[in-house]
Design a protein around this nucleic acid. Structure first.
Length: 349
DNA sequence: TAATATT
């Protein structure tokens, strides 16, 4: 634990997530400020539909949260895909990095790292690079740019089908001045061995998105989500499909009184969990099916071992129904899970 | 030639 912390949490890159190369591993001390917070985390690559409450619920399963904020577009209110979680205890922040960094949520692999102190100097430090040799790797790209400063993230865009580089990428520096120097030094220059010069300029800001792009984003249907890691358990072919109209996120469920519906969402009962099961397994199993607002593993007060069951709250009925259809009967280790909407029989008024 | 990381 101590070793990993001093080595920098951002070294925990995942293999296929939208993560960075591993040169951003400086500790807060090494990066020049001993005042860096050890409780405040930045969470990147959040699913588009994840809410602040869901973020808080996920990270609250680690420890007490002092504050939590999902960053949204000022105009459209759309999530910008990242947020901040500030813990009360630095130990919990460290634990969150160790347990939640790299967690797969829907189509995303989230990244959890310490937040740098907010400052104007770290803003607008993102570069768009085009004309790269198709053979250039992310590592080589970073090597080229690292002479100008500390790289926070890098990415080379690839063809989704072939996996071949599209010759364009992004480099985010720690500070804007570093990005400015990189433009001066590398724009219109040929990388070593390349036959064509590259273009290096500041990347567009998300706020500059066209209204058309915003519209397509607003109407992106959450129904197209792949059915999670457990597709073999999915409903038999021929089973009724769910209408995208019904799960557009604005369907009002307030006041509906149906078993399983708890006012804030649809409560799902998960039975036959192992004694050492924890909340993360529930997030991982149900997250791919849609908006999960809460998970809970029921534990014995004395032993702190799971009593064999837990609950998951999902916002949308259709997504909950698909999750149940897919996960009921799912084999987790050597156990076969029973998954259903929660009934009211356990606590009759 | 364009995905999102500083409240």
């Amino acid at each position: 634990m101590e070793t990993q912390l001093s080595n920098g949490p951002t070294c925990n890159n995942t293999s296929n997530g939208p993560s960075t190369m591993s040169n951003n591993c400086s500790s807060p001390v090494e990066s020049g400020s001993i005042e860096d917070s050890k409780t405040n985390l930045i969470v990147n690559y959040l699913p588009q539909n994840m809410t602040q409450e869901e973020l808080k619920s996920l990270f609250g399963s680690i420890g007490e949260i002092e504050s939590c904020k999902l960053v949204r577009d000022k105009i459209t209110g759309q999530s910008l895909g990242y947020g901040f979680v500030n813990y009360v205890d630095p130990k919990d922040a460290e634990k969150a990095i160790n347990t939640l960094n790299g967690l797969r949520l829907q189509t995303k692999t989230i990244k959890v790292s310490y937040a740098r102190p907010s400052s104007a100097s770290i803003r607008d430090a993102n570069l768009y690079v085009s004309g790269l040799p198709k053979t250039m790797t992310q590592k080589e790209l970073e090597q080229l740019f690292s002479q100008y400063g500390r790289i926070i993230t890098s990415r080379i865009l690839v063809d989704q089908v072939t996996g071949v580089s599209r010759g364009v990428g992004f480099i985010r520096f720690d500070r804007r001045v570093e990005a400015e120097e990189a433009i001066k030094g590398l724009n219109c220059q040929k990388p070593p061995g390349a036959t064509e010069p590259i273009t290096v300029k500041f990347a567009n800001n998300p706020s500059q998105k066209t209204s058309q792009a915003l519209l397509s984003q607003l109407y992106q249907s959450p129904n197209r989500r792949y059915p999670g890691p457990l597709a073999q358990q999915a409903q038999p072919s021929g089973a009724p499909r769910f209408s995208p109209m019904a799960i557009d996120g604005v369907t009002s469920l307030a006041g509906i009184n149906i078993p399983g519906h708890a006012g804030t969402g649809w409560c799902i009962f998960v039975y036959n969990l192992a004694p050492d099961a924890d909340e993360s397994i529930l997030w991982q199993m149900f997250g791919p099916f849609g908006a999960v607002t809460n998970v809970k593993v029921i534990r014995d007060f004395n032993t702190n071992k799971c009593k064999g069951f837990g609950f998951v709250t999902m916002t949308n009925y259709d997504e909950a129904a698909v999750a149940i259809a897919s996960l009921n009967g799912y084999r987790l280790g050597d156990r076969v899970l029973q998954v259903s909407f929660k009934t009211n029989k356990t606590h009759k008024a």
